[in-house]
Design a binder for these strands. Sequence first.
DNA 1: ATCCCTTTGACTAATCCTGACTAATATTAT
DNA 2: ATAATATTAGTCAGGATTAGTCAAAGGGAT
Lengths: 148, 148
Amino acid sequence: MSDIIEAYLKKVLGHSEQVEIRRSEMANLFNCVPSQINYVINTRFTVQKGYLVESKRGGGGYIRIIKVKLLDESEMLDTIIEIVGNSISQNDAYAIVQKLYDDDFLNKREAVIMMAAMDKTVLGLESKVAKEIRARILKSCLNNLRYE
Amino acid sequence: MSDIIEAYLKKVLGHSEQVEIRRSEMANLFNCVPSQINYVINTRFTVQKGYLVESKRGGGGYIRIIKVKLLDESEMLDTIIEIVGNSISQNDAYAIVQKLYDDDFLNKREAVIMMAAMDKTVLGLESKVAKEIRARILKSCLNNLRYE
DNA sequence: ATCCCTTTGACTAATCCTGACTAATATTAT
DNA sequence: ATAATATTAGTCAGGATTAGTCAAAGGGAT
């Protein structure tokens, strides 16, 4: 079933940059529960695979899937994300950003922004928690730099 | 419906610095209750999105929406940092980043990085703490871009 | 028999719409 | 002047409508 829904969405995306659906309509169309649509999207339309997903709840709500072009560096980002893991110190995080800057993947301002967001005093909190949040921030930034 | 009203107002603001409406007339025009106009204004025309709203009740009453003008860069950053305060929701933070992008202070990648760092799921569950961390991240980023 | 992927549905969260009630301002009457 | 009335906008809470989460159950391959 998930494969069928995936195929349907990819067919539409074959001749269009994006597709916008109403979750309950899709569930009706394929005779499944609404949350299955979420499952398909979460497993088949990830950013690693080149898709962005936006949605809105409430009246006139929607789910929008957008096809994006992944950069050549996408695989390198996978490696770095794996290295980061679930926790990282400020020093280690800065070293990664510095490396990305040296390799011309980030420019000066981009590096400055990332470091500013991962600053020890900015995150506050107890060191262990800060390191976990920092890891999530770093991975989130890298994940969102995969495309265009 | 809210989207339609929003689009109408933005269209007028597209070729004018401000727009002045009469609430009941708008409600009539779009065939909705008057308080829906308030809803649209409160959710779509916030300071975070770069709008000021003035109004007057009683005879000859009105609602006026004003697009805020760009000041010089440093002063603009001060204003935004003041708006951020000690706590900010993801939606409001994104609106500010979007505004900075629209005004060409940030480019696409920079905006994407900042949003990625301030994502709700990235910062964690406890909403109150997340909002405080988000405010510190946003202010830190802006302050570090001041002299770049 | 076990493991991994899929399916399900109850519960949660976000957004929108509505209307009764309140508040401010202007106008008219005394 | 003051008071009463009319005319406007603001607030808020509840209901409706949509999507998200998560843990448990199902099912097929090895």
